[in-house]
Simulated scan of single mutants.
Amino acid sequence: MPLPPWISDLPALDLLVSVAETGSVGRAAQVHGITQPSASARLAKLERRLGVPLLVRSRRGSLLTPAGEAVVAWSHGVLDAAQTLADGVLTLRADRQARLRIAASLTVAEYLLPAWLLALRRPHPDLDIAAAVANSNGVVSAVRAGTADLGFVESPDLPPDLSSRVVGNDRLALVVAASYPLAAHAWRPLRATDLADQPLLLREPGSGTRDTFLKALAASLGFAPSLPHAISLGSTTTILSTVRAGGGVGVISARAAASAVAAGELVELQVEGLSLTRPLHALWLGRTPTALAAELLSIAAA
């Protein structure tokens, strides 16, 4: 059964309790920091809304009617619960202002997030920051569950129930060991169809890197290939180690491969018609992020 509308007038009930405690509308008004006419108007409105007389006014002050005494007795528990609610909400607000919980997919966590957090820490040296690393699906789950105030993902598909903002871009690279057979022909771009027979080293299902690559490959071919020789690996580090051992074609962020490619350990392959650039998104629950999350968003986007 829904609550009646007048139950929301807690300030008027609180004022009525003060009248019972002080014996006067004027003294109760002083306790609440309002004028006596304003207090009288609030109490009169409360009487009209409840439909019962609450006070009898005399030269000696204001006396509660029997109905007023009953309402005051019942109001104590309600007001105590309301105060508990108010105190709890204020504590939550203070906690949100002093703590920031982040979930980030691997590429963002390893190559971008540290610098962002360092920039945020400078004006907030006492800020409590908790950062968790997960694949894009895990990040979405954390934000949706409220265990992360802000999430960063690489996935091309964004959940419609979360707010989002582009904070940067990333590019995937297809890399092989310098001794791998395809490396000798790296000067000649491959066709997308050439990848189907290769042992592709992909991140696990739920990874934004994997989803971006598979979506780009399907768009280039016009259909989703079966990729019978593809291998799923749980981290970029594992993919790099397997690539160095000659285990196949690694599909990772170009940021992760840059130093090894520059050193000549790995060779980046080129594929005609395969677009591997992807946006990086920040996600949050609700229409607007928390103040600290909004500040980190500005740093990331800059």
Results as ranks from 00 to 15, higher is better:
residue 14 D to T: 04
residue 41 A to E: 09
residue 40 S to H: 11
residue 19 V to I: 13
residue 30 Q to W: 08
residue 31 V to I: 08
residue 36 Q to L: 04
residue 33 G to D: 00
residue 29 A to H: 02
residue 29 A to K: 03
residue 43 L to K: 11
residue 42 R to T: 05
residue 27 R to Y: 13
residue 33 G to E: 00
residue 23 G to W: 06
residue 24 S to P: 06
residue 42 R to P: 10
residue 29 A to S: 04
residue 30 Q to F: 04
residue 16 L to V: 02
residue 31 V to N: 00
residue 16 L to C: 05
residue 40 S to E: 14
residue 35 T to P: 02
residue 34 I to Y: 01
residue 18 S to L: 11
residue 20 A to N: 09
residue 34 I to C: 06
residue 21 E to K: 09
residue 28 A to D: 07
residue 41 A to N: 12
residue 42 R to I: 07
residue 42 R to Q: 14
residue 28 A to K: 07
residue 30 Q to T: 09
residue 44 A to E: 12
residue 20 A to Y: 02
residue 19 V to D: 04
residue 42 R to Y: 05
residue 44 A to S: 14
residue 29 A to F: 02
residue 39 A to H: 12
residue 15 L to M: 15
residue 29 A to Y: 03
residue 38 S to N: 07
residue 41 A to Q: 14
residue 42 R to D: 01
residue 36 Q to S: 10
residue 33 G to W: 00
residue 27 R to T: 15
residue 21 E to R: 13
residue 20 A to H: 09
residue 32 H to L: 07
residue 29 A to C: 05
residue 15 L to C: 14
residue 17 V to N: 00
residue 31 V to D: 01
residue 22 T to K: 11
residue 40 S to A: 15
residue 15 L to I: 14
residue 32 H to M: 06
residue 34 I to E: 02
residue 14 D to R: 12
residue 20 A to T: 08
residue 14 D to F: 01
residue 19 V to R: 03
residue 36 Q to E: 15
residue 26 G to I: 09
residue 37 P to R: 10
residue 43 L to R: 08
residue 40 S to V: 15
residue 44 A to W: 08
residue 16 L to Y: 02
residue 31 V to Y: 00
residue 22 T to I: 01
residue 32 H to A: 10
residue 22 T to M: 03
residue 25 V to Q: 12
residue 43 L to I: 13
residue 39 A to K: 11
residue 20 A to P: 03
residue 27 R to M: 08
residue 29 A to V: 07
residue 14 D to C: 04
residue 23 G to I: 07
residue 14 D to M: 07
residue 41 A to I: 10
residue 29 A to Q: 02
residue 27 R to S: 13
residue 14 D to S: 14
residue 17 V to G: 00
residue 43 L to D: 11
residue 36 Q to R: 13
residue 17 V to I: 01
residue 43 L to E: 13
residue 25 V to S: 09
residue 34 I to S: 01
residue 16 L to M: 03
residue 31 V to A: 05
residue 18 S to D: 15
residue 38 S to R: 10
residue 38 S to I: 06
residue 23 G to R: 04
residue 18 S to Y: 02
residue 24 S to L: 08
residue 24 S to Y: 10
residue 42 R to S: 12
residue 22 T to A: 05
residue 36 Q to H: 13
residue 43 L to N: 11
residue 14 D to V: 01
residue 37 P to D: 04
residue 35 T to G: 14
residue 25 V to I: 15
residue 27 R to G: 04
residue 16 L to K: 03
residue 17 V to P: 00
residue 16 L to F: 01
residue 26 G to K: 14
residue 26 G to N: 08
residue 25 V to T: 15
residue 43 L to S: 12
residue 19 V to W: 03
residue 16 L to A: 01
residue 31 V to C: 00
residue 37 P to C: 06
residue 32 H to R: 15
residue 34 I to K: 01
residue 24 S to H: 05
residue 36 Q to D: 14
residue 40 S to Y: 15
residue 15 L to R: 11
residue 14 D to L: 08
residue 29 A to D: 02
residue 28 A to P: 06
residue 31 V to F: 00
residue 20 A to E: 06
residue 15 L to G: 11
residue 42 R to F: 07
residue 36 Q to C: 08
residue 30 Q to A: 14
residue 41 A to L: 15
residue 20 A to W: 02
residue 30 Q to I: 06
residue 31 V to M: 00
residue 30 Q to H: 06
residue 43 L to V: 09
residue 39 A to N: 10
residue 26 G to F: 06
residue 19 V to F: 07
residue 15 L to Y: 12
residue 29 A to W: 02
residue 35 T to D: 08
residue 36 Q to V: 13
residue 33 G to V: 00
